[in-house]
């Protein structure tokens, strides 16, 4: 992977990847770490992607797997289960703080599917391919995730 392509993909997908990781980890510091690790792995990608969209999906998959590992690490090392519960969270309203009740209501694996569906606009089939799960698993997680979000967000008809 050339430096030029790395730069292109960072500029294209940094924000996107950060939001995906944030939807899973609920921590800006952890999400940024996952972003960095994902792009570090991209450095070692042999060859080039046929299309930018292929790279995007590859990065999402890597980021979700890294996020899962990090979450598991947090559980077993006695760190704050939810880093945003730490005492140094600013009290003023921020975009992250406003989003917190929303994503904290979801188990991480539901949050990733909800985010990829509603925010990134992927279909259930595409999400299934990216996350290597079945379409039925995606639709079940979407269904359950929506039920949990119902109380917090206005339903669209």
């Amino acid at each position: 992977m050339t430096d030029q392509n790395i730069e292109k993909y960072v500029r294209l997908y940094h924000s996107m990847l950060y939001r995906v990781a944030f939807s899973y980890l609920r921590s800006s510091a952890d999400a940024e770490d996952v972003c960095q690790d994902s792009f570090l792995r991209l450095l070692n990608y042999p060859g080039e992607f046929p299309a930018d969209e292929d790279c995007k999906r590859w990065l999402i998959r890597v980021a979700v797997n890294l996020s899962k590992n990090l979450l598991k690490y947090r559980r077993t090392h006695g760190g704050p289960q939810d880093p945003l519960d730490a005492a140094d969270i600013p009290a003023e309203p921020t975009a992250e703080n406003e989003l917190l009740p929303l994503i904290k209501s979801l188990p991480p694996e539901y949050g990733a599917v909800i985010h990829l569906f509603y925010y990134e606009g992927y279909s259930a089939k595409e999400i299934a391919q990216m996350l290597d799960i079945s379409v039925t698993a995606v639709t079940s997680r979407l269904s359950r995730g929506r039920r949990r979000l119902k109380k917090l967000l206005t339903e669209e008809e």
Binding site: H14, S15, Y18, R19, F22, S23, S28, A29, A31, E32, C35, A95, E96, E98, L99, L102, H115, Y119
Partner: peptide
């Protein structure tokens, strides 16, 4: 909500 989420770096 997510549009307002931006990376710290």
């Amino acid at each position: 909500l997510f549009d307002n989420i931006t990376p710290p770096k």
